[in-house]
Design a protein around this nucleic acid. Structure first.
Length: 780
DNA sequence: GAGTTTGAAACT
DNA sequence: CAGTTTCAAACTC
């Protein structure tokens, strides 16, 4: 055992004994001891009456499942060398904890935990993601006591409450009365039986995840962990994914499958929720709320009484103290994260069953000793998760939030669709760099999600177009940096706020989860120099529009953040950021010979004389076009006039937006189009947005990086984008979303999300749209 | 795929 | 702040 310094206590011992039947002879129960000893639950255990031995059937079952031979090396789980010890100490910081009702998390979820106490989940922002990686569930059900089940989740197992069991009517007769169960859900290792095809899919997914996140454990900050409700019977370290199915023993098999990958995959926590799953995001926190979105049914049952082979555990525990904090909190957090991860895997994994390489991957991972993450870039890169591995779950979640209710499909459907998406690299995950790297496209993310959802429900294939663009701007940009180490704005990934991943061809990359601190510090540095450095180069306003379809869309009103400085490209090539972003040049541009198809700078009637002069010069090339453009611009201009002062300001940082809406050239073909990026100013902003809606780690990340004060600027109250007028393709003005609209909750949230997400210019007005109660509630 | 062009980012 | 250098994407072949 690795916890020599902590002599096992009686309770712990009892628990261990209870679990022993499930474990292979050589397995250690260290996990239990480690996790429980100092936890409040420990006291419960002590006070509890003797624990009845596990059911024979279960034990037998488990034993079979968990043959040590079948177990994949789990050492990797805790092995992350990248864990930052310093961060670990920070763990359970309950700052700004957010309480989320379960309902809020999963409005659609069929099942919600009935336990009154359990209904509220407190999300704690913690600096160390490691904590989230694993969850251990320990249920202390004492029927005799008035208390409902007192589950302690040590591992992402099923957290069943008595009520749930009753509901299912699948209670184990033996346990119904006088039930004093301690269900320790430890890292589950699936036995051979469980290794069915579906499982393989999961495994594959898990493997991917593990690889991706091995690095990340230590690096991610801003994760959230659930704290246990002060008055709650339940100490919930893991997100509440209770599903009826989980409760049932029958589900164990499936559950086992579900959890199985956890061990194999390793520590990387399931960044189940939105961004978390996406290795590329800096803000990797998992959002509990998101997790809840998954329907219980969909979720694999909890892994009950699943033990992790000792060696595996030992391996994890044996990890250098730096990486493997023995702290109870830490361990529990880790476990929790794992659980979440399982959840995630479960989802994606199920979908991924047929995924290519899944089997191969799984086998490889399980059979081969865990790869240590080496400092070398190459190794790191190999470990990087392909973007496709975790197709932007966050996005999905986000999308879900934003998707109008009418478009919402049952969780099953959604999940399947999501899974589908995950399966299709092109769809979300592994995609080539976003079409528009410079625009932050929250919408796109939404789009992606929506598309999936829609796909299932509506059959719209649209999303698959942008292979590597998940649309939210969070996908890997596939940079190829050589000297910047991906820590400068030169690096698109860095600029976009995402970690480099496999698709990248960068050298000496430091933009990885393992270097989170470096990345953050660098970002801060850059931001200190230029607050808008990470702002999207192009600010786009209307997210929703573009979701529909690219082809007819005129570019949403958007504007280049700073204006280009093109000289030779005439703003007709992607060298021009304006052009690249699918927006016309504005007054703020200093380009020479602007011929931007999206709108020339000189076209602006309002331009100063100098501009006019320059325009004359430029006209040589195409007076004709200009005229056309001007007309168009005029139209737009009028629209902008209608804007409120604030809106106007927001709409055109540079003054007035003259962009010709109609003329947009080949925009449709251009990337930006498909996804409407709300244009947060920066990735941070984006993060805020997401965080607001989903409670994603983004928030924490943003806070982390910027500090509340700093972030506030961007958070800002109003986002120009929001105020920015969106012109529909038809030139119809799109009215900005209003607070209190009659939209369905989801719709609202989506809208709100967008609005909120819209980062405001530092000095710009107030956020018009943040009204959604739900959103607000979610927002920390 | 290698080399060139380009303009932003970084540096001084 | 302006000029220069560095950098990586975009582009060309």
């Amino acid at each position: 055992m690795d916890t020599p310094d902590r002599p096992p206590r009686a309770a712990a011992t009892a628990a261990v004994e209870m679990l022993r039947p499930f474990a292979a002879p050589d397995w250690g129960l260290i996990v239990l001891e480690v996790s429980i000893q100092d936890s409040p639950v420990f006291n419960f255990i002590n006070s509890l009456s003797p624990i009845p031995p596990p059911k024979p059937s279960d034990s037998a079952h488990n034993v079979q499942l968990f043959k040590s031979s079948d177990l994949a090396p789990v050492s990797s789980i805790f092995a992350s060398p990248h864990v930052n010890p310093a961060k670990e100490s920070k763990l359970p910081i309950r700052e700004d904890s957010v309480q989320l009702s379960r309902e809020s998390h999963s409005p659609n979820s069929v099942r919600t935990r009935t336990g009154a106490t359990s209904s509220i989940i407190r999300m704690i922002r913690c600096k160390n993601i490691v904590s989230e990686n694993c969850s251990i569930t320990c249920y202390l059900n004492d029927s005799t006591s008035s208390k409902a089940s007192q589950p302690i989740q040590l591992c992402g197992g099923s957290a069943e409450s008595d009520t749930n069991q009753n509901t299912d009517g699948k209670k184990d007769p033996t346990t119904e009365q006088d039930r004093t169960d301690i269900e320790f859900v430890l890292l589950d290792q699936c036995g051979p039986e469980k290794m069915d095809s579906s499982q393989s899919g999961n495994n594959a997914c898990e493997n991917q995840l593990s690889e991706q996140h091995k690095d990340e454990l230590g690096s991610f900050d801003g994760g959230y962990m659930f704290a246990h409700q002060p008055h709650s019977d339940m100490l919930r370290l893991a997100p509440p994914f209770e599903s009826e199915t989980q409760l049932v023993n029958e589900t164990l098999q499936t559950d086992n499958v579900y959890c199985e990958t956890l061990l194999t995959d390793g520590p990387s926590g399931s960044y189940t929720q939105n961004s978390a799953p996406d290795p590329h995001l800096y803000w990797a926190g998992a959002v509990e709320g998101c997790a809840t979105d998954y329907t219980p049914q969909m979720l694999p049952g909890a892994c009950q009484s699943q033990l992790v082979p000792n060696d595996q555990i030992n391996n994890k525990l044996n990890e250098p103290s730096d990486y493997m904090p023995m702290d109870h909190n830490v361990s529990s957090q880790n476990l929790r994260g794992m659980r979440r991860r399982c959840l995630f895997n479960e989802k994606s994994g199920a979908a991924n069953e047929g995924a290519k390489n899944s089997s191969a991957r799984h086998s490889t991972n399980s059979t081969t000793p865990r790869r240590k993450i080496s400092s070398s870039d190459n190794n790191l890169k190999t470990l990087r998760t392909p973007p496709c591995a975790l197709p932007g779950i966050g996005l999905h979640l986000n999308a879900l939030a934003t998707v109008p209710k009418d478009k919402m499909v049952p969780h099953n459907d959604i999940q399947s669709s999501l899974n589908q998406a995950s399966n299709v690299p092109s769809a979300v995950g592994s995609s080539p760099p976003t079409d528009d790297p410079h625009t932050i496209n929250d919408d796109s993310s939404q789009t992606a999600v929506v598309a999936y959802v829609g796909e299932s429900s509506q059959g719209s294939p649209k999303k698959k177009r942008h292979k590597f663009d998940n649309g939210d701007g969070t996908s890997c940009k596939r940079c190829s940096c050589k000297k910047s180490k991906c820590l400068k704005l030169y690096c698109e990934c860095f600029h976009a706020g995402v970690f480099c991943s496999e698709p990248c061809s960068c050298q000496g990359c430091l933009n990885m989860p393992s270097n989170m601190e470096t990345v953050l510090s660098t970002r801060e540095q850059i931001e200190s120099r230029n607050p808008l450095a990470f702002a999207p180069k192009v600010i786009r306003t209307e997210p929703g529009q573009e979701l529909a379809d690219d082809s007819n869309k005129t570019p949403a009103s958007s504007r280049h953040k700073r204006g280009c400085n093109c000289k030779k490209s005439s703003c007709l090539k992607k060298y021009c950021e304006c052009y690249q972003g699918g927006v016309g040049c504005s007054v703020s541009c200093r380009c020479e010979g602007c011929k931007n198809a999206f709108g020339r700078r000189e076209g602006v009637a309002l331009l100063g004389i100098e501009e006019a002069k320059r325009g004359c010069e430029e006209k040589d090339g195409g007076v004709k076009e200009e005229t056309t453009d001007n007309d168009k611009q005029l139209v737009i201009y009028q629209d902008s006039i209608n804007l409120t002062p604030a809106e106007s300001v927001l709409a055109t940082p540079s003054v007035v937006d003259y962009r010709p809406l109609v003329a947009l050239p080949p925009l449709s073909s251009k990337k930006p189009r498909s996804s409407t990026k709300l244009g947060g100013y920066s990735s941070r902003l984006e993060g805020h947005l997401k965080s607001d809606i989903l409670l994603s780690p983004f928030e924490s990340y943003a806070e982390m990086m910027l500090g509340d004060g700093t972030s506030n600027v961007l958070k800002g109250e109003s986002s120009p984008q929001t105020s920015v007028k969106v012109v529909s393709p038809n030139k119809k003005r799109v009215s900005p979303p209003r607070i209190g609209t009659g939209l369905s909750p989801i719709c609202k949230s989506g809208r709100k999300l967008i609005l909120k997400s819209i980062p405001s210019f530092p000095s710009l007005g107030v956020d018009i749209t943040n009204e959604d109660p739900n959103t607000s509630s979610l927002a920390p």
